[in-house]
Design a binder for these strands. Structure first.
Lengths: 213, 213
DNA sequence: TTAAAAATTTGATTTATATCAATGAAGCTG
DNA sequence: CAGCTTCATTGATATAAATCAAATTTTTAA
C-alpha cells in the first residue's frame, strides 16, 4: 500500500513514516462498471482518489435527465470540495468502466496532512482544475446554442472517430441525440466538416471557431 | 498600507517584514459605479482583492445577454483561478457601486507568498467557495425550470422587500422580467407567498422547497 | 449470414421561455 | 402635484430545442 501511495502525485513527497500513517486511514475499493460511488445529497466524510477506470459525475434535473458535469480519469481527486466545506456531495458519481478508488477518512486527513505544502498545493491544483471545468460547462451550456456547442466540441476534440458514440457526445453537450444529429448536418452543409461513413473529418477549423466565438 | 493589509484575512498572520514586502507589490485603485475592472478573455497578471463596493462577474452569451455568475462583496479574492492557471479572465468584472480594489502583482505574490500556509489555506477557502457558487449556478440554471428557480430563490433569500429590483432578481436567475413576473404569479396562486403591494411575504416555506427538490 | 437489437437520422408536434407590444403602476423631478 | 421616466405586468407571438414517431442504418450475436 505504501508503495502505491507514493505513486500518487499528492503524496509523492511524503516520508515513509507519513506514508504508513496515511496507509492506515486509507482503504482500497474496487467497483464494477455501472456501480455508483456516491449519490448527490449524501453526507461526505470520505475523500476519494480515483486510481483506475472512468468515473462520471452528474446531476439529475427535474425530468430525471442526467446533466453530466465531468468524466474523471485516473489519477484524480473526486469531490474534495464537499469535504472541505463539510457539505453533502453535490453530484452523483458512477463508474463507466470497472475501476478502483482509494477511500480516505477525511477528518484524519485534514488534521494530519492538509498542512503539508505539497498536499495543499495539489489540492489547489485540483480545485482550480475543477473550477475550469465548471466555467466551461457554464460557457458551453448557458452561453451557446446547440450548433455552436457542437462546433466548439469539434474544434476542441478534433476529428470524431467511429468509436465515439453520438449518444455520449450528446450527453456531454447537454443535447438530445436528435438535436446533435441536426447540428452535425448544419455544420456539414456549411462545409466545415465532411462525413465519411461514421467518421467526421474537420475541413475548416477556423470556420468552426467562428461559429462559437 | 501595512495596517490595511493586516486587516485582510489572507494576510492577517504575516509578520511586519512580510507585510511591508507585500505592500511594495500592491497598488490600491478606486473605481466608479459602472467601471469595468477587467474583461473576459484579457490575459491576467494581477490578483485582485475587493476592498469596497460591489462587483458583478458575468459572461456574455451569443445574443449579448449577460449571464451573471456572481456578485462579489468585500473582502473577496477575485478571479484567482485565472492567475493560478495563467489563463485569461473567464468573465468580465464590473463595479455596481463605487469601490476599490487591491491590485497585487501575481508573479511576485506566487513566488514569495503562496508557500505561506495561511495564504494557501485562504486560497483554498476562496476556491472552494467559488466552486460552490458555480455548482449552484449549474444546479439552478441547468436543472431547474423558471418557477422552480424562483421558488428556490425565495426559499433561500426569504421575504422580498421593496428595494430589491425585480430586474436584478431576473438576471440573477437567468430569466427575463416577464417570465419572473409570471413565475411569481404562479407561486402566489399556489398560496406559498402573499403579495402586499411591492413586497412578498413567504407563507409556506416548505411548500416552496417542494417546488425545486 | 441473417435476424434482432441498438443507434442514428429525419420529420411532425409540443413545450417552455424569449421576444414583442401594450398597458398600468410607482418613483422621481421640477 | 403634474408629468416624465422607469419598472412591472399582461397578452400575443416567435423560437429553439425537446419530445414523439417512424424509417433507416449499424452493430451484435446467434
Amino acid at each position: 500500500m505504501v508503495n502505491q501511495l507514493k505513486n500518487i502525485f499528492l503524496f509523492s513527497h511524503m516520508s515513509e513514516e507519513e506514508l504508513s500513517h496515511l496507509a492506515s486511514i486509507v482503504k482500497l475499493r474496487s467497483f464494477n462498471n455501472g456501480e455508483t460511488l456516491f449519490y448527490e445529497g449524501t453526507p461526505s466524510d470520505k475523500l476519494y482518489i480515483l486510481l483506475d477506470g472512468v468515473l462520471k459525475g452528474y446531476k439529475t434535473d427535474m425530468k430525471e435527465n442526467e446533466i453530466v458535469l465531468h468524466y474523471f480519469y485516473p489519477v484524480s481527486l473526486v469531490a474534495e470540495m464537499a469535504n472541505l466545506h463539510h457539505i453533502p456531495f453535490p453530484a452523483t458519481a458512477e463508474f463507466q468502466t470497472d475501476g478502483s478508488i482509494l477511500e480516505v477518512d477525511y477528518h484524519t486527513f485534514e488534521r494530519d496532512f492538509l498542512k503539508n505544502p505539497t498536499v495543499s498545493f495539489g489540492l489547489i491544483k485540483s480545485l482550480t482544475q475543477k473550477l475550469k471545468y465548471l466555467e466551461d460547462i457554464i460557457t458551453t451550456r448557458l452561453a451557446l446554442d446547440a450548433t455552436s456547442r457542437v462546433a466548439k466540441f469539434l474544434y476542441e476534440n478534433g476529428d470524431i472517430s467511429d468509436s465515439t458514440k453520438r449518444h455520449k457526445i450528446a450527453t456531454i453537450l447537454g443535447l438530445t441525440p436528435e438535436t446533435l444529429s441536426r447540428s452535425f448536418k448544419k455544420i456539414k452543409i456549411l462545409g466545415l466538416i465532411s462525413d465519411e461513413g461514421k467518421n467526421f473529418t474537420i475541413l475548416n477549423r477556423e470556420g468552426l471557431k467562428e461559429l462559437f466565438s
